[in-house]
């Protein structure tokens, strides 16, 4: 994990991190750097098809937004990546959904390692009813880290990364439920970072938050870009346009269009996409 060379992220005035040059013009599909790639991936709840024959590849270090109308399968697809859909009885998958070249629906997938390296942030902030400190330590402790010094270090680092440190550093042992909604969601992000993931999946992370908290989360996503591969599901097109490098548009379980964000929002190649982003949909 450690490399000798450190490239700190620089901030622009707008609060967005500078985009890595080499990715700026890269082709979206079939990239050799794809960390998540789906090939003809379908997901069923009983007889109902949630995700229908989706093929796409997500570049390492990028921020990918998935948009689409409600019930279009965007959340299902996201939750398939770290197999959170396993909890739903009667669900099953078809095709290939590979993380780092490994098909996660392989029977012999190490679910623990998969979920630790593909972290997830949920729609509603869901901190445990424990202290802030214990929330963050939950993942590291599962990985066997017991030393207090090491844990404190992780807590501080993750809270700083999640831009929450200054607000809570004096209250680390207070209940996480006492935080505001936006703080709780940033705590959940910090908690996810504490497991040292490579990919962070965000399932409409701002839908339960007010605009100010949303802006802070978006800032945070911009900061984390590059260090983590981020996939974010959102129903807010402005948000997708603001934070993402690439955007995928899902409709009725199908992937309609997947392209660089500027391209998709300014010059969509599909009629459905255009209808949706111009508000003529539904």
């Amino acid at each position: 994990m450690e490399t000798p060379e450190t490239v700190p992220l620089k901030k622009t005035d707008a609060g967005h991190a500078a985009r890595p040059q080499q990715f700026a013009q890269a082709a979206v599909t079939e990239s050799s750097e794809a960390v998540i790639s789906a090939r003809q991936f379908s997901f069923f709840y009983g007889a109902k098809c949630g995700v229908d024959q989706v093929s796409m590849a997500i570049r390492s270090g990028s921020v990918t937004a998935i948009i689409g109308p409600s019930g279009c399968g965007k959340s299902t697809f996201l939750r398939s990546i770290n197999r959170m859909n396993d909890l739903i009885p009667g669900s099953r998958a078809q095709g290939v959904l590979a993380v780092n070249g490994h098909n996660v629906y392989d029977k012999r997938t190490n679910l623990v390692n998969l979920r630790q390296q593909v972290g997830m942030v949920f729609q509603k902030p869901n901190p445990f009813a424990k202290s802030i400190y214990d929330n963050i330590c939950y993942g590291p402790r599962l990985q066997g880290i017991r030393s207090r010094g090491r844990l404190s270090e992780i807590v501080e680092k993750c809270l700083r990364d999640a831009a929450l440190w200054d607000e809570v550093k004096d209250d680390l042992h207070k209940s996480a439920l006492a935080l505001s909604g936006g703080q709780q969601q940033r705590l959940c992000i910090a908690r996810t970072l504490a497991t040292r993931p490579n990919v962070v999946l965000m399932d409409e992370p701002c839908s339960a938050l007010d605009p100010i908290a949303t802006a802070r989360i978006e800032d945070l996503i911009a900061q984390l870009k590059g260090a983590y591969t981020i996939v974010i599901v959102t129903h807010n097109m402005q948000q997708a346009a603001r934070v993402s490098d690439e955007t995928a548009f899902f409709c009725l379980g199908k992937l309609i269009e997947y392209d660089r964000t500027e391209k998709l929002f300014t010059n969509p190649s599909k009629k459905e996409t255009e209808d949706y982003i111009t508000g003529r949909f539904g």
Partner: peptide
């Protein structure tokens, strides 16, 4: 217990049994 608790724990890499016991 809200399902989101279990999901949060599972997403952090806890197994089903650990989720049960710890969360």
């Amino acid at each position: 217990v809200p399902q989101t608790y279990r999901e949060a724990s599972l997403a952090l890499g806890a197994g089903k049994f650990r989720t049960l016991v710890l969360v």
